[in-house]
Nucleic acid binder design. Structure first.
Lengths: 303, 303
DNA sequence: AAGGTTCTCTGACTAAAGTCAGAGGATGGA
DNA sequence: TCCATCCTCTGACTTTAGTCAGAGAACCTT
């Protein structure tokens, strides 16, 4: 990797941790240990099951229990057994707890303001824009791709969201039963594979490919969650599928798509797909694409 | 301040501390407590006086002493009295210490790489560019302005650097004695004032203004250190002087400058100065500028 | 109804990261 | 020379932020 880029990233890390870190301590770390503050924050207005809380913060159960006890004795939260399963307990903020949380929220705002405050208007606009870009790209870099079984809950979640979206977008609606959907077996190794993209453990996109021996590979069910768009994830999924297909000896990729999916169509074009005549009779398709795959000699782009 | 901007800053803080923080721990926090690692880092290749070390890291003397003892017993550093003042002690890394430090350095590089790794080439370029912008503007926001006496060591440091630079830049060289420099008294309240800009405590720029009662204020000795340019600091100094002059009842600003100082001339133009005929016989000046100052009703731009 | 599992809690620890109050040697100035 | 000051170190504490090993209640399956 480019050494100048690495230097810049390190300089960025230094400046940001120093500046944001110092201010963070000054504003937020005033009167309450960070552990408690994080809890207070994560519990939220609505309350939360203790085990969820533990999972989200990645903390030991004993430790969380003690922190909760401390919030309780300070009168900031109440912990009560859940109704349906009395092993699980639910934390809720008291009125006082909500006030305390609002205070933290205010401090976070002060912190943000104090970063912008010494700058003039155009500088502020530029800083905020650059922060948005960093935020977006770091988020993109946090997304992980994994091969999963098409019956995995995360895969199902993506597919259901995908179908729901197609139903909305297609002029004719969408009925999975009428479409040429591969059965799950075709997207399982060795007949194919299915990728799920995750952000912080949440599934936010998917793509499958059928790998019939001696025939073109066919990309199916590519979807990216609305909140995860514009992160280059579609391209990343395609790259990963192409690499894996090529590794499997495949030399041609195919796919079909509906005219309503304009941004997908743009992606296929810019990714090197050429429009070709219909190669199947998928009732929902208006466009058919094909791409010759080069030899699988280039490096994989991450997992 | 704009609420959308504040939201973006907070989102940025969250993403960055999460992503960089998690990786930071994973890469750097492996085998050595952070305290020791910070020391190891800060001591540097050349060695350092203990009190400087303490000052830079902002740590208690007892604590640093203990950390040093621990580095010594691990054979990573040696602590010896300074020659000229045997109260002061100097830390130096041993060979082993230097190796350990290089290891930390390598880890920092890995950390930076791992942030870029999942991205494709154009995304990397965009992320690095945005990081550079954030870095630059956060640095700009960290600069503080303070009114100091022109005899203060930081002021003198700036002035000496300023003269040295003029000597280099002016075709004719520069001899302070030949120039119409105000004596220090004219840049002291209430006859005027002198600002020093500092970054992490280091003086990196200055500007003075004479405030003769009933006459135009005159800006003098504006300088920004080479490493602190392109941060909008010149403009910030001018804004601050203008505000203070206006608060002092002054309605016109004046200044003279040399033709070699092209970026300063551009700044004066874009800041609303108009070129006017010579109003003094400064031997080193080629351009004279004037600006009408509006009423002092607008908000101050920070300190 | 029994036995295994899940969830939370308590007790007993540990390590890190400091803080505070001197002690004691070295130095500088009167 | 003597005294105040500077710099570093030591001893005695404290607070955070955990970890680990059960105990005990609730639940689920068979």
């Amino acid at each position: 990797m480019d050494a100048a880029q690495i230097d810049q990233v390190r300089r960025f890390n230094r400046t940001v941790t120093e500046r944001v870190g110092v201010l963070h301590d000054r504003y937020l770390g005033r009167d309450r240990p960070i552990g408690e503050a994080r809890l207070l924050w994560e519990i939220g207005e609505a309350g939360l099951d203790v085990r969820l809380l533990r999972e989200r913060l990645g903390l030991d159960s004993g430790y969380v229990s003690r922190l909760l006890r401390s919030l309780e004795t300070d009168g900031l939260a109440t912990v009560e057994p859940q109704l349906r399963d009395r092993r699980v307990r639910t934390v809720r903020l008291t009125e006082k707890g909500r006030t305390e949380r609002a205070l933290l929220d205010g401090r976070s705002n002060e912190l943000a303001s104090s970063l912008l405050e010494p700058l003039n208007t155009p500088q502020r606009a530029r800083l905020v824009a650059a922060m948005a870009e960093v935020d977006r790209l770091l988020t993109a870099a946090t997304v992980t791709l994994a091969v999963v079984d098409p019956d995995h809950p995360d895969a199902r979640h993506c597919l259901l969201s995908y179908f729901a979206e197609l139903r909305q977008l297609f002029e004719t609606g969408f009925d999975p039963a009428r479409s040429l959907l591969p059965d799950a077996g075709e997207l399982r190794p060795t007949r194919g594979l299915f990728l799920v993209a995750r952000l912080h453990g949440e599934p936010i996109g998917c793509a499958g490919v059928k790998l019939p021996p001696g025939a073109p590979a066919e990309i199916k069910r590519m979807w990216v969650a609305p909140q995860a768009r514009r992160l280059g994830l579609g391209r990343r999924l395609l790259t990963e599928l192409e690499t894996r297909a090529a590794r499997n000896g495949c030399d041609t990729l195919r796919l079909d798509t509906n005219k309503a999916l304009t941004s997908a169509i743009n992606l296929y074009h810019s990714f090197g797909f050429q429009e070709v005549p219909a190669f199947n009779n998928e009732p929902y398709a208006h466009h058919w694409f094909e791409k010759r795959v080069t030899a699988p000699s280039y490096p994989t782009e991450a997992a």
